[in-house]
Computed example of a mutant assay.
Amino acid sequence: MKRVLILLAAVLMALPVWAVELGDDGLHKPDWLRDTFKDLREDLAEANSEGKRLMILIEQRGCIYCERMHRDVFPLPVIDSYIRENFFVVQIDLYGASELTDFDGQVLSQRDAARKWGMMFTPSILFMPEEVEEGQTAAQAAVAVMPGAFEAGTTLDLLTWVNEKRYALESEEDFQRYHARMIRERTVDLGD
C-alpha cells in the first residue's frame, strides 16, 4: 500500500499545474492581461500601436468556467503564445464596481457596462476591430463574441479567425465552416 501511495504521489507531482494567480477581485490574472484605466478608446489605440487586436475578457469571481479556461485552455503553449503575440487583453468584471469608459464615451461601472452590452455568461470575450465607429458601444462594434467557455481547439480557431480578419472576407467560410475545416486539417488533438 505504501508503494502505491508513493507512486500516486509521484504521478500527481509530475502532472502539469496551471496555477493562475487570483487578484484581489477574485478574478484570474495571467501575466498577458493589461492593467489599464479601462478607457476602451485608449486601450484600442494602444493595441493598434502594438499591432495587436483588442480583446475584452469578461469574467466573474467564482466562475467555474473561467477557472477551467485559465487552467486548461489559456495556458496551453500554442494558445498562450498566440494571445501574447496577437492580442491586447483587457479584463472586465461582470459584477465590478470600478468604472470604465465605453467607446461611445459613456463612463459607467464594469457591471453596468456588461449589462449594457447584454453580457450574461462568463467567460465571454468581445473581439474588437481596429477602428470603432463614433457612437458605437463595445458590443455594437465587436467583430466576434465568444459566449462562454470553449475547448482549446475552438478557442484557438476563434483567435486565429479574428486575428486574420476572416470575418471580413468575401468568402463563404464563416467561423463554423472555418472551424470545421481546421478540425479536419489539425495534426494535433486540441480537444476541439
Rank of each mutant, 00 (worst) to 15 (best):
D93H: 12
E134K: 07
A138T: 09
R111W: 06
K116L: 13
F127E: 01
V89G: 06
G105L: 06
D102A: 11
Q110P: 07
G96C: 07
I92A: 15
A139G: 12
L94I: 10
Y82S: 08
N86W: 05
Q106A: 15
Q140W: 13
E133Q: 12
G96M: 02
D93A: 14
F103C: 05
E85M: 12
T122P: 05
R115Y: 09
D104A: 08
I125M: 06
V90N: 09
M119R: 01
T101D: 07
V107Y: 00
V90A: 11
L126P: 04
M120D: 00
V107F: 00
I83S: 01
L94F: 09
V107R: 03
S98N: 14
W117P: 04
W117M: 07
V89L: 06
L94H: 04
E134L: 10
L100F: 01
E133P: 09
T137H: 02
P123Y: 07
V132T: 12
E130N: 14
Q91M: 14
S109C: 10
A141N: 13
A97E: 15
D104C: 06
A138Q: 03
A139L: 08
F87Y: 04
M120T: 10
S98G: 15
A141V: 15
V89D: 05
I83M: 00
I83R: 00
K116P: 09
L94C: 06
E99K: 00
I83T: 05
R115W: 08
P129R: 09
G105T: 15
G135Y: 09
V90T: 14
Y95I: 11
M119N: 07
V90L: 13
I83G: 03
D104R: 01
I92S: 12
D104W: 01
A114I: 05
R84E: 09
K116Q: 11
T122W: 02
E99G: 04
L94S: 05
W117S: 04
Y82G: 07
E133G: 14
S81D: 15
E85G: 03
F127K: 03
E85R: 13
V107G: 00
A139V: 11
V107T: 10
M128G: 05
Q91P: 08
V90C: 13
T101F: 04
F87C: 01
K116A: 14
N86V: 14
F103E: 00
I125H: 00
S109A: 12
M120L: 08
S81N: 14
